[in-house]
Design a protein around this nucleic acid. Sequence first.
DNA 1: GTCTATACCTAGATAGAC
DNA 2: GTCTATCTAGGTATAGAC
Lengths: 206, 206
Amino acid sequence: MAYRKTSAEIDRLAATREHLVTCATSVVTEVGWSQASVTAVADAAGIAAGSVYQHFPSKGALAVEVFRRAAGREVDVLGEVLQGPGTPAERLSRGVGVFARRALENRGLAYALLAAPAEPAVGAERLDFRRRYRALFAEVVHQGIANGLLPAQNGEITAAALTGAVGEVLVDPLGTHDGKATEELLAELTAMALRCAGVPADAQQP
Amino acid sequence: MAYRKTSAEIDRLAATREHLVTCATSVVTEVGWSQASVTAVADAAGIAAGSVYQHFPSKGALAVEVFRRAAGREVDVLGEVLQGPGTPAERLSRGVGVFARRALENRGLAYALLAAPAEPAVGAERLDFRRRYRALFAEVVHQGIANGLLPAQNGEITAAALTGAVGEVLVDPLGTHDGKATEELLAELTAMALRCAGVPADAQQP
DNA sequence: GTCTATACCTAGATAGAC
DNA sequence: GTCTATCTAGGTATAGAC
Protein backbone atom coordinates (compact mmCIF):
# COMPACT_ATOMS: atom_id res chain seq x y z
CA MET A 1 0.00 0.00 0.00
CA ALA A 2 0.72 3.63 -0.13
CA TYR A 3 3.16 3.38 -3.02
CA ARG A 4 0.46 5.15 -4.97
CA LYS A 5 -1.64 8.08 -3.85
CA THR A 6 -5.35 7.54 -3.48
CA SER A 7 -7.54 9.70 -5.66
CA ALA A 8 -8.85 11.42 -2.55
CA GLU A 9 -5.32 12.42 -1.61
CA ILE A 10 -4.64 13.70 -5.10
CA ASP A 11 -7.84 15.71 -5.10
CA ARG A 12 -7.07 17.21 -1.74
CA LEU A 13 -3.58 18.18 -2.80
CA ALA A 14 -4.83 19.74 -5.99
CA ALA A 15 -7.53 21.57 -4.08
CA THR A 16 -4.98 23.05 -1.71
CA ARG A 17 -2.90 24.16 -4.64
CA GLU A 18 -5.90 25.75 -6.31
CA HIS A 19 -6.80 27.48 -3.09
CA LEU A 20 -3.26 28.78 -2.86
CA VAL A 21 -3.35 30.19 -6.38
CA THR A 22 -6.73 31.76 -5.75
CA CYS A 23 -5.60 33.40 -2.53
CA ALA A 24 -2.36 34.56 -4.11
CA THR A 25 -4.38 36.15 -6.90
CA SER A 26 -6.45 37.98 -4.32
CA VAL A 27 -3.39 39.25 -2.52
CA VAL A 28 -1.83 40.47 -5.75
CA THR A 29 -5.10 42.10 -6.72
CA GLU A 30 -5.21 43.98 -3.44
CA VAL A 31 -1.62 44.93 -2.73
CA GLY A 32 0.31 44.33 -5.93
CA TRP A 33 3.21 42.05 -6.71
CA SER A 34 5.83 43.82 -4.70
CA GLN A 35 3.88 43.49 -1.45
CA ALA A 36 2.78 39.95 -2.12
CA SER A 37 5.41 38.15 -0.06
CA VAL A 38 5.29 34.44 0.52
CA THR A 39 4.29 35.12 4.09
CA ALA A 40 1.39 37.35 3.07
CA VAL A 41 0.11 34.83 0.54
CA ALA A 42 0.43 31.93 2.95
CA ASP A 43 -1.42 33.88 5.62
CA ALA A 44 -4.22 34.62 3.19
CA ALA A 45 -4.47 30.95 2.31
CA GLY A 46 -4.43 29.93 5.96
CA ILE A 47 -1.27 27.85 5.70
CA ALA A 48 2.28 28.28 6.89
CA ALA A 49 4.84 30.02 4.73
CA GLY A 50 6.92 26.90 4.47
CA SER A 51 3.99 24.88 3.16
CA VAL A 52 3.89 26.96 0.02
CA TYR A 53 6.99 25.12 -1.09
CA GLN A 54 5.07 21.84 -1.10
CA HIS A 55 3.20 23.16 -4.11
CA PHE A 56 5.61 25.48 -5.88
CA PRO A 57 9.38 25.33 -6.11
CA SER A 58 9.80 29.06 -5.62
CA LYS A 59 7.94 32.26 -5.09
CA GLY A 60 8.53 33.23 -8.69
CA ALA A 61 6.88 30.03 -9.94
CA LEU A 62 3.77 30.80 -7.93
CA ALA A 63 3.70 34.36 -9.21
CA VAL A 64 4.02 33.19 -12.78
CA GLU A 65 1.19 30.74 -12.27
CA VAL A 66 -1.02 33.51 -10.90
CA PHE A 67 -0.20 35.73 -13.83
CA ARG A 68 -0.75 33.03 -16.43
CA ARG A 69 -4.12 32.03 -15.11
CA ALA A 70 -5.46 35.56 -14.96
CA ALA A 71 -3.89 36.84 -18.15
CA GLY A 72 -4.77 33.67 -20.00
CA ARG A 73 -8.45 34.20 -19.32
CA GLU A 74 -8.26 37.66 -20.88
CA VAL A 75 -6.40 36.44 -23.93
CA ASP A 76 -8.97 33.73 -24.43
CA VAL A 77 -11.89 36.11 -24.17
CA LEU A 78 -10.29 38.66 -26.48
CA GLY A 79 -9.41 35.94 -28.95
CA GLU A 80 -12.96 34.63 -29.07
CA VAL A 81 -14.38 38.05 -29.80
CA LEU A 82 -11.72 38.99 -32.33
CA GLN A 83 -12.16 35.69 -34.15
CA GLY A 84 -15.94 35.72 -33.90
CA PRO A 85 -18.47 36.87 -36.47
CA GLY A 86 -18.57 40.28 -38.09
CA THR A 87 -16.39 42.53 -40.17
CA PRO A 88 -12.84 43.20 -38.97
CA ALA A 89 -13.93 46.64 -37.78
CA GLU A 90 -16.84 45.22 -35.81
CA ARG A 91 -14.69 42.57 -34.22
CA LEU A 92 -11.97 45.02 -33.34
CA SER A 93 -14.45 47.38 -31.80
CA ARG A 94 -16.13 44.65 -29.80
CA GLY A 95 -12.83 43.11 -28.73
CA VAL A 96 -11.45 46.36 -27.38
CA GLY A 97 -14.73 47.11 -25.67
CA VAL A 98 -14.96 43.72 -24.01
CA PHE A 99 -11.35 43.85 -22.91
CA ALA A 100 -11.70 47.30 -21.41
CA ARG A 101 -14.98 46.53 -19.71
CA ARG A 102 -13.58 43.43 -18.08
CA ALA A 103 -10.54 45.36 -16.89
CA LEU A 104 -12.69 48.11 -15.42
CA GLU A 105 -14.81 45.54 -13.62
CA ASN A 106 -11.78 44.04 -11.94
CA ARG A 107 -9.46 46.97 -11.56
CA GLY A 108 -7.02 45.64 -9.03
CA LEU A 109 -6.24 42.55 -11.00
CA ALA A 110 -6.20 44.35 -14.32
CA TYR A 111 -3.74 46.87 -12.96
CA ALA A 112 -1.53 44.09 -11.66
CA LEU A 113 -1.58 42.38 -15.03
CA LEU A 114 -1.06 45.48 -17.12
CA ALA A 115 1.12 47.88 -15.24
CA ALA A 116 2.04 47.17 -11.64
CA PRO A 117 5.73 46.79 -10.81
CA ALA A 118 6.60 43.12 -10.67
CA GLU A 119 9.54 40.80 -10.29
CA PRO A 120 11.48 39.89 -13.40
CA ALA A 121 9.82 36.52 -13.92
CA VAL A 122 6.42 38.17 -14.08
CA GLY A 123 7.80 40.94 -16.26
CA ALA A 124 8.98 38.37 -18.76
CA GLU A 125 5.58 36.72 -18.71
CA ARG A 126 3.97 40.07 -19.32
CA LEU A 127 6.06 40.61 -22.42
CA ASP A 128 5.03 37.18 -23.64
CA PHE A 129 1.34 37.89 -23.17
CA ARG A 130 1.67 41.22 -24.92
CA ARG A 131 3.00 39.31 -27.86
CA ARG A 132 -0.14 37.22 -27.78
CA TYR A 133 -2.34 40.29 -27.75
CA ARG A 134 -0.40 41.66 -30.67
CA ALA A 135 -0.82 38.43 -32.56
CA LEU A 136 -4.58 38.47 -32.03
CA PHE A 137 -4.90 42.05 -33.19
CA ALA A 138 -2.56 41.45 -36.11
CA GLU A 139 -4.75 38.65 -37.38
CA VAL A 140 -7.79 40.90 -37.56
CA VAL A 141 -5.86 43.74 -39.15
CA HIS A 142 -4.38 41.46 -41.77
CA GLN A 143 -7.81 40.11 -42.61
CA GLY A 144 -9.10 43.62 -42.97
CA ILE A 145 -6.31 44.55 -45.32
CA ALA A 146 -6.81 41.40 -47.38
CA ASN A 147 -10.54 42.12 -47.68
CA GLY A 148 -9.89 45.69 -48.70
CA LEU A 149 -11.75 46.95 -45.66
CA LEU A 150 -8.61 48.44 -44.15
CA PRO A 151 -5.99 50.52 -45.94
CA ALA A 152 -2.51 49.17 -46.61
CA GLN A 153 -0.39 49.23 -43.47
CA ASN A 154 2.06 47.18 -41.47
CA GLY A 155 -0.30 45.00 -39.49
CA GLU A 156 2.29 44.08 -36.88
CA ILE A 157 2.90 47.70 -36.04
CA THR A 158 -0.77 48.53 -35.88
CA ALA A 159 -1.30 45.51 -33.64
CA ALA A 160 1.46 46.62 -31.30
CA ALA A 161 0.04 50.13 -31.27
CA LEU A 162 -3.43 48.84 -30.38
CA THR A 163 -1.99 46.76 -27.56
CA GLY A 164 -0.07 49.68 -26.13
CA ALA A 165 -2.80 52.20 -26.68
CA VAL A 166 -5.52 50.20 -24.96
CA GLY A 167 -3.27 49.49 -22.01
CA GLU A 168 -2.16 53.06 -21.58
CA VAL A 169 -5.65 54.47 -21.89
CA LEU A 170 -6.78 52.13 -19.16
CA VAL A 171 -3.95 52.77 -16.71
CA ASP A 172 -5.36 55.97 -15.32
CA PRO A 173 -8.99 54.86 -15.03
CA LEU A 174 -7.80 51.65 -13.37
CA GLY A 175 -5.85 53.63 -10.83
CA THR A 176 -8.60 56.06 -9.89
CA HIS A 177 -11.56 54.55 -8.13
CA ASP A 178 -14.42 56.46 -9.67
CA GLY A 179 -16.57 54.35 -11.93
CA LYS A 180 -18.07 57.33 -13.68
CA ALA A 181 -17.97 57.97 -17.38
CA THR A 182 -17.24 54.33 -18.11
CA GLU A 183 -19.49 54.29 -21.13
CA GLU A 184 -17.98 57.41 -22.60
CA LEU A 185 -14.52 56.00 -22.03
CA LEU A 186 -15.45 52.81 -23.84
CA ALA A 187 -16.96 54.68 -26.75
CA GLU A 188 -13.92 56.88 -27.16
CA LEU A 189 -11.54 53.97 -26.76
CA THR A 190 -13.19 51.87 -29.42
CA ALA A 191 -13.43 54.85 -31.76
CA MET A 192 -9.72 55.47 -31.30
CA ALA A 193 -8.94 51.82 -32.04
CA LEU A 194 -10.90 51.98 -35.28
CA ARG A 195 -9.11 55.15 -36.36
CA CYS A 196 -5.80 53.57 -35.44
CA ALA A 197 -6.49 50.64 -37.74
CA GLY A 198 -7.60 52.98 -40.49
CA VAL A 199 -11.27 52.10 -40.58
CA PRO A 200 -12.90 54.67 -42.88
CA ALA A 201 -14.77 57.34 -40.92
CA ASP A 202 -18.09 56.54 -42.53
CA ALA A 203 -17.83 52.91 -41.42
CA GLN A 204 -17.12 53.63 -37.78
CA GLN A 205 -20.69 53.72 -36.49
CA PRO A 206 -21.94 50.33 -35.39
CA MET B 1 38.17 79.79 8.13
CA ALA B 2 36.48 76.74 6.85
CA TYR B 3 33.09 77.63 8.17
CA ARG B 4 32.22 78.08 4.53
CA LYS B 5 33.17 75.89 1.63
CA THR B 6 35.44 77.34 -0.98
CA SER B 7 34.04 77.44 -4.50
CA ALA B 8 36.65 74.91 -5.56
CA GLU B 9 35.37 72.48 -2.98
CA ILE B 10 31.80 73.01 -4.10
CA ASP B 11 32.76 72.47 -7.71
CA ARG B 12 34.60 69.32 -6.91
CA LEU B 13 31.68 67.94 -4.92
CA ALA B 14 29.25 68.78 -7.67
CA ALA B 15 31.53 67.23 -10.25
CA THR B 16 31.69 63.99 -8.29
CA ARG B 17 27.93 63.94 -8.05
CA GLU B 18 27.58 64.53 -11.77
CA HIS B 19 30.06 61.80 -12.48
CA LEU B 20 28.08 59.48 -10.26
CA VAL B 21 24.84 60.24 -12.08
CA THR B 22 26.53 59.77 -15.43
CA CYS B 23 28.04 56.43 -14.45
CA ALA B 24 24.78 55.27 -12.90
CA THR B 25 23.02 56.11 -16.16
CA SER B 26 25.55 54.02 -18.05
CA VAL B 27 25.08 51.08 -15.73
CA VAL B 28 21.30 51.27 -16.04
CA THR B 29 21.63 51.54 -19.81
CA GLU B 30 23.73 48.40 -19.92
CA VAL B 31 22.19 46.11 -17.33
CA GLY B 32 18.84 47.62 -16.38
CA TRP B 33 17.50 48.87 -13.10
CA SER B 34 17.25 45.55 -11.34
CA GLN B 35 20.96 44.79 -11.81
CA ALA B 36 22.11 48.31 -11.03
CA SER B 37 23.07 47.76 -7.40
CA VAL B 38 24.77 50.43 -5.37
CA THR B 39 27.94 48.40 -5.54
CA ALA B 40 27.82 48.12 -9.33
CA VAL B 41 27.21 51.83 -9.74
CA ALA B 42 29.95 52.77 -7.30
CA ASP B 43 32.38 50.45 -9.04
CA ALA B 44 31.57 52.04 -12.37
CA ALA B 45 32.17 55.47 -10.89
CA GLY B 46 35.43 54.38 -9.31
CA ILE B 47 34.32 55.11 -5.75
CA ALA B 48 33.38 52.97 -2.79
CA ALA B 49 29.82 51.91 -2.23
CA GLY B 50 29.61 53.86 1.00
CA SER B 51 30.63 57.06 -0.73
CA VAL B 52 27.46 57.06 -2.78
CA TYR B 53 25.64 58.07 0.37
CA GLN B 54 27.64 61.30 0.53
CA HIS B 55 25.70 62.44 -2.50
CA PHE B 56 22.33 60.72 -2.28
CA PRO B 57 20.32 59.74 0.77
CA SER B 58 19.30 56.39 -0.70
CA LYS B 59 19.61 54.20 -3.70
CA GLY B 60 16.11 55.11 -4.77
CA ALA B 61 16.95 58.80 -4.80
CA LEU B 62 19.86 58.19 -7.12
CA ALA B 63 17.73 56.04 -9.40
CA VAL B 64 15.07 58.71 -9.55
CA GLU B 65 17.66 61.33 -10.42
CA VAL B 66 18.98 59.15 -13.24
CA PHE B 67 15.48 58.63 -14.56
CA ARG B 68 14.51 62.29 -14.36
CA ARG B 69 17.58 63.50 -16.18
CA ALA B 70 17.24 61.08 -19.05
CA ALA B 71 13.47 61.19 -19.37
CA GLY B 72 13.43 64.95 -18.99
CA ARG B 73 15.62 65.37 -22.05
CA GLU B 74 13.17 63.34 -24.12
CA VAL B 75 10.18 65.27 -22.87
CA ASP B 76 11.92 68.52 -23.71
CA VAL B 77 12.81 67.43 -27.22
CA LEU B 78 9.33 66.08 -27.90
CA GLY B 79 7.79 69.23 -26.51
CA GLU B 80 9.84 71.47 -28.74
CA VAL B 81 8.87 69.58 -31.85
CA LEU B 82 5.20 69.27 -30.91
CA GLN B 83 5.01 72.97 -30.11
CA GLY B 84 7.06 74.04 -33.09
CA PRO B 85 5.85 75.25 -36.47
CA GLY B 86 3.51 73.39 -38.77
CA THR B 87 0.05 71.95 -38.76
CA PRO B 88 -0.96 69.67 -35.89
CA ALA B 89 -0.57 66.68 -38.20
CA GLU B 90 2.92 67.73 -39.25
CA ARG B 91 4.00 68.34 -35.69
CA LEU B 92 2.57 65.06 -34.49
CA SER B 93 4.29 63.18 -37.27
CA ARG B 94 7.61 64.90 -36.65
CA GLY B 95 7.34 64.51 -32.90
CA VAL B 96 6.70 60.78 -33.04
CA GLY B 97 9.47 60.38 -35.59
CA VAL B 98 12.01 62.29 -33.54
CA PHE B 99 11.07 60.46 -30.38
CA ALA B 100 11.35 57.06 -32.00
CA ARG B 101 14.60 57.87 -33.77
CA ARG B 102 16.23 59.04 -30.57
CA ALA B 103 15.05 55.93 -28.78
CA LEU B 104 16.42 53.67 -31.49
CA GLU B 105 19.75 55.47 -31.38
CA ASN B 106 20.08 54.83 -27.65
CA ARG B 107 18.31 51.56 -27.19
CA GLY B 108 19.57 50.52 -23.81
CA LEU B 109 18.59 53.75 -22.15
CA ALA B 110 15.31 54.00 -24.02
CA TYR B 111 14.37 50.51 -22.94
CA ALA B 112 15.22 51.33 -19.35
CA LEU B 113 13.07 54.44 -19.47
CA LEU B 114 10.14 52.87 -21.26
CA ALA B 115 9.80 49.30 -20.21
CA ALA B 116 12.48 47.72 -18.06
CA PRO B 117 11.44 46.40 -14.64
CA ALA B 118 12.29 48.96 -12.01
CA GLU B 119 11.90 49.63 -8.34
CA PRO B 120 8.69 51.32 -7.20
CA ALA B 121 10.22 54.80 -6.94
CA VAL B 122 11.22 54.68 -10.58
CA GLY B 123 7.89 53.18 -11.51
CA ALA B 124 6.11 56.12 -9.96
CA GLU B 125 8.37 58.50 -11.83
CA ARG B 126 7.61 56.68 -15.04
CA LEU B 127 3.90 57.18 -14.52
CA ASP B 128 4.54 60.86 -13.93
CA PHE B 129 6.49 61.24 -17.14
CA ARG B 130 3.87 59.38 -19.08
CA ARG B 131 1.44 61.99 -17.89
CA ARG B 132 3.74 64.62 -19.33
CA TYR B 133 3.86 62.86 -22.67
CA ARG B 134 0.10 62.65 -22.66
CA ALA B 135 -0.19 66.33 -21.89
CA LEU B 136 2.08 67.23 -24.79
CA PHE B 137 0.16 65.07 -27.23
CA ALA B 138 -3.15 66.30 -25.88
CA GLU B 139 -2.21 69.88 -26.58
CA VAL B 140 -1.57 69.16 -30.24
CA VAL B 141 -4.71 67.08 -30.60
CA HIS B 142 -6.84 69.77 -29.01
CA GLN B 143 -5.39 72.38 -31.32
CA GLY B 144 -6.17 70.17 -34.29
CA ILE B 145 -9.74 69.73 -33.17
CA ALA B 146 -10.15 73.46 -32.58
CA ASN B 147 -8.79 74.23 -36.03
CA GLY B 148 -11.08 71.70 -37.63
CA LEU B 149 -8.10 69.73 -38.91
CA LEU B 150 -8.91 66.76 -36.69
CA PRO B 151 -12.32 65.17 -36.15
CA ALA B 152 -14.13 65.50 -32.84
CA GLN B 153 -12.65 63.17 -30.24
CA ASN B 154 -11.60 62.98 -26.63
CA GLY B 155 -8.13 64.46 -26.83
CA GLU B 156 -7.01 63.03 -23.53
CA ILE B 157 -7.80 59.52 -24.63
CA THR B 158 -6.11 59.95 -27.98
CA ALA B 159 -3.07 61.38 -26.22
CA ALA B 160 -2.89 58.41 -23.87
CA ALA B 161 -3.30 56.07 -26.80
CA LEU B 162 -0.47 57.75 -28.69
CA THR B 163 1.77 57.51 -25.65
CA GLY B 164 1.04 53.83 -25.18
CA ALA B 165 1.13 52.99 -28.86
CA VAL B 166 4.50 54.58 -29.53
CA GLY B 167 6.02 52.91 -26.50
CA GLU B 168 4.67 49.47 -27.29
CA VAL B 169 5.67 49.63 -30.93
CA LEU B 170 9.20 50.47 -29.86
CA VAL B 171 9.57 47.79 -27.20
CA ASP B 172 10.36 44.98 -29.58
CA PRO B 173 12.76 46.91 -31.85
CA LEU B 174 14.53 48.21 -28.77
CA GLY B 175 15.01 44.70 -27.47
CA THR B 176 16.36 43.19 -30.67
CA HIS B 177 19.71 44.45 -31.78
CA ASP B 178 19.25 44.62 -35.51
CA GLY B 179 19.18 48.14 -36.82
CA LYS B 180 17.52 47.13 -40.06
CA ALA B 181 14.29 48.51 -41.37
CA THR B 182 14.51 51.55 -39.14
CA GLU B 183 13.19 53.86 -41.81
CA GLU B 184 10.26 51.63 -42.62
CA LEU B 185 9.47 51.35 -38.94
CA LEU B 186 9.49 55.12 -38.57
CA ALA B 187 7.27 55.60 -41.60
CA GLU B 188 4.72 53.08 -40.38
CA LEU B 189 4.81 54.41 -36.85
CA THR B 190 4.15 57.99 -37.87
CA ALA B 191 1.42 56.89 -40.27
CA MET B 192 -0.23 54.97 -37.45
CA ALA B 193 -0.03 58.00 -35.17
CA LEU B 194 -1.76 60.15 -37.77
CA ARG B 195 -4.52 57.62 -38.26
CA CYS B 196 -4.91 57.34 -34.51
CA ALA B 197 -5.49 61.06 -34.23
CA GLY B 198 -7.92 60.97 -37.13
CA VAL B 199 -5.89 62.90 -39.68
CA PRO B 200 -7.76 62.54 -42.99
CA ALA B 201 -6.13 60.01 -45.29
CA ASP B 202 -5.52 62.52 -48.06
CA ALA B 203 -3.56 64.77 -45.66
CA GLN B 204 -1.21 62.10 -44.41
CA GLN B 205 1.58 62.48 -46.95
CA PRO B 206 4.20 65.02 -45.87
C1' DG C 1 1.44 17.02 4.67
C1' DT C 2 1.66 20.72 7.50
C1' DC C 3 3.59 23.23 11.20
C1' DT C 4 7.33 25.99 13.79
C1' DA C 5 11.62 27.64 13.86
C1' DT C 6 15.52 28.99 11.74
C1' DA C 7 19.28 29.29 8.45
C1' DC C 8 20.82 31.96 4.77
C1' DC C 9 21.33 35.24 1.30
C1' DT C 10 21.01 39.60 -0.83
C1' DA C 11 21.42 44.28 -0.80
C1' DG C 12 21.00 48.72 1.38
C1' DA C 13 22.88 51.50 4.79
C1' DT C 14 26.26 52.92 8.63
C1' DA C 15 30.61 53.60 11.58
C1' DG C 16 35.04 54.66 12.32
C1' DA C 17 39.90 54.67 10.45
C1' DC C 18 42.83 57.20 7.33
C1' DG D 1 35.77 62.98 1.75
C1' DT D 2 36.67 58.43 0.88
C1' DC D 3 37.71 53.83 2.19
C1' DT D 4 37.04 49.17 4.51
C1' DA D 5 34.45 46.53 7.26
C1' DT D 6 30.30 45.67 9.32
C1' DC D 7 25.52 45.83 10.63
C1' DT D 8 20.82 45.18 9.67
C1' DA D 9 16.38 44.12 7.66
C1' DG D 10 13.41 41.67 4.71
C1' DG D 11 12.23 37.80 2.73
C1' DT D 12 13.11 33.18 0.48
C1' DA D 13 13.90 28.63 1.37
C1' DT D 14 14.91 24.51 4.40
C1' DA D 15 15.01 21.16 8.45
C1' DG D 16 13.01 18.54 11.67
C1' DA D 17 9.02 17.79 14.89
C1' DC D 18 4.17 16.41 14.95
